[in-house]
Amino acid sequence: MLRSSLQRKQKAGPQSCPLLIFSVGGRRLAVKTDEVAGISAWKGSIPVPSRTPFVSAVVRKDKDVFPVFDLAELLHVTVKGEELLCLTAKHHRGAMAICIDEDMPVLHTLDAAAIQAYRGGEFEAIGSFANGLDQIPIISLAKLGSA
């Protein structure tokens, strides 16, 4: 009985990978949804003089203070829009904020088998996938800035 149910489970449909697709400076990126703590309005950041690449500001949310990772700077782009968004990422050093374009992120479920290698080297990526004519990298938020 147990074996048959296990076998049934193994034969179940392809493993799915829930993603959130967002954009920074018009460039589309994806992240695994379990690496995202939330999306909120971007209310500006507070500069913190620093020598750490791409980490030179914090945002304050009520009584909490989160570091800001400047993904736009890493990608050499400028975030687009009047009403920017704040993606709160789960990072292995603690939650951090990332300013993203005003375009509302969309959820996308991907067949894990469709994940291909990502050849760009500017950030740690889990892989990439084809979306129309686009090849969208799946960025690893947890390891961002660790390289």
Binding site: V48, P49, R51, T52, V55, V65, F66, P67, R93, M96
Partner: peptide
């Protein structure tokens, strides 16, 4: 006094 977030990894 909140600790400096650990993401600040350099001489700061």
């Amino acid at each position: 006094v909140l600790p400096l977030p650990r993401h600040f990894q350099n001489e700061e």
